[in-house]
Structures are given as C-alpha cells and as structure tokens.
C-alpha cells in the first residue's frame, strides 16, 4: 500500500496551503450554523414547561461538553500519532488542542453552574457528570502544565503526549467510578431532565448548535495550528515568501 499521502499530510506546508483554500468555506459554515442555531434556540424554540427560559443555556452547555471530551481524545490521538510516526504536525495539533479543550471544559462547567442556580438552587452540585467534567479540566491542565515545563520543546511534546495517553486509559475508569460514587451518595432531592425526552422543537436547534460547535472547534484548531506552523517554520523560504507577500498586500491596501 502506498503511504505517501499519509506522510504528505504530515508536512506543515501541505497543511498550511490546503487549509488556506478550505478555511473561508469552513468559517462561513461555522458562522451560519452558530448564528442560525443560536437565534433558533434562544428566540424561537418553545419554553421548557418546568424550567422556563433558563433551560436555553443547554444550547451552549451541551455542545461545549461534547467538544470538551471529544477534544481530549483528539489531543491524545494526535499525541499518539506524533509518538509513533514522529510527525511534527501532529504534535502541533496536540499542542493547540490542549488550551482549546481546557477552555471548552471550563465553558461547560461555567454554563453548568449558571444553569444549576435556577434549576437546582445552587451553583455547584456534586453530580456525576459535573464531577467528571471537573476532573477532565484537571487532566487538561496537567497536560498543559507539563507541555510548557520543559526547556526542550521536543521533550515537552513527547512527555505531554504520553500523559495525554495515560489520561485516555484513565478517562473511562474515572467516569465509571465517579458514576458509581454518585449512585452511592445520590441525594434524593435532585432529578434530571433527560436529553432524549426533549421535545423535537427543542432538540433540533441543539443539533444545529452541536454541529456548529464541531465546525467552530475545527476552525479554531486549524487557525492556531497555522500560527504554530508559521512560528516554527519561520526560517524556511516558503514562509518568508508568504510573509513578504502579505506585507505587500497590506501595504497596497493602506495606500
């Protein structure tokens, strides 16, 4: 089997040039999905019978939680590819996915707290899913801290890739044990609204928002990887040429 395509994908230049072509389309799609989903969800979807308008925060909370977890696996997968095939580009992806995932996890926790106050009467509840999310944030912070602790970038990349992989082995165990711990201590006063029982009119905008968040994640990741590429490859001729071109263009625009 011909593996050339795989190694070509590992070339930062190839990545940069391909994404240059795609990025405007993906950005437009993200914009349409997010704005459309938000307007639909916040203004047109029906009110929840029990929670009133406060439930509408799920249009941010649920997609952010999805991406926070998916982002961790993507980060670990990128790290694994880097360790196995020694591909620089995949380390860059891993490096950029870590802060992005941490921010999304924080967003999920924050929106959860805001939602929790009117629903459960408190900003913080030791619910299984909330607790798991908090631990996910800790895992992200650990990977980030380790990444920047080393003098050598290469060692930082590899060490945090290994830690991310160890975290991946642990995540199912952590989720299961937190779940089990929660059933052991479950206070009887809290009840949950389950997602599948949602009315389709509420669920459809949520689906649009989830898709929009996935696209947004892709755009944000690609943008930060591109910055990383420019910074790391700044001495190569193709980057210099591009920078010269961009400088000329902006000069032309101001004149």
């Amino acid at each position: 089997m011909n593996w050339n395509w795989f190694y070509r994908m590992g070339s930062p230049r190839w990545f940069y040039e391909t994404t240059s072509r795609w990025l405007p389309w993906l950005g437009a799609l993200t914009f349409i999905l997010l704005v459309g989903g938000l307007v639909w969800g916040l203004a047109f979807a029906p009110q929840d019978a029990k929670q009133g308008n406060s439930f509408r925060i799920i249009y941010l909370h649920v997609p952010a939680s999805f991406l926070a977890l998916a982002g961790y696996f993507l980060m670990a997968a990128a790290g694994a590819i880097g360790l196995i095939w020694k591909m620089k580009l995949s380390y860059m992806v891993m490096k950029c996915a870590a802060p992005l995932g941490a921010v999304l996890t924080f967003l999920a926790l924050f929106t959860g707290a805001v939602w929790g106050k009117p629903t459960w009467g408190s900003y913080w509840v030791w619910d299984a899913r909330v607790t798991s999310m908090l631990i996910l944030l800790f895992l992200y912070l650990g990977v980030l801290a380790l990444q920047y602790a080393f003098n050598s970038k290469d060692v930082g990349n590899k060490a945090s890739a290994i830690l991310a992989l160890v975290g991946t082995v642990n995540i199912p165990i952590i989720y299961k044990s937190v779940d089990w711990w929660f059933t052991l201590h479950q206070p009887a006063t809290i009840t949950f609204t389950q997602a599948p029982s949602m009315h389709p009119a509420m669920f459809q905008p949520l689906l649009v928002m989830i898709l929009g968040f996935y696209c947004f994640y892709a755009v944000a990741l690609i943008l930060s990887v591109r910055v990383e590429i420019l910074a790391r490859e700044r001495k190569t001729s193709w980057v210099r040429e591009r920078v010269k071109q961009a400088a000329q263009n902006s000069l032309g625009a101001t004149l």
């Binding site: 650990g142 990977v143 380790l146 975290g167 299961k176 044990s177 937190v178």
Partner: peptide
C-alpha cells in the same frame, strides 16, 4: 508540585473505591 498536579486526577478512582 507539577508531579502532584499531573498525578492527582489519576488518583480519583483509587480514592473513591
């Protein structure tokens, strides 16, 4: 300190059980 930071989340299941 970093050691503590990266290992603690992994300890969660052990402490629960």
């Amino acid at each position: 300190l970093l050691l503590t930071l990266i290992v603690m989340p992994l300890y969660m299941p052990v402490i629960i059980f």
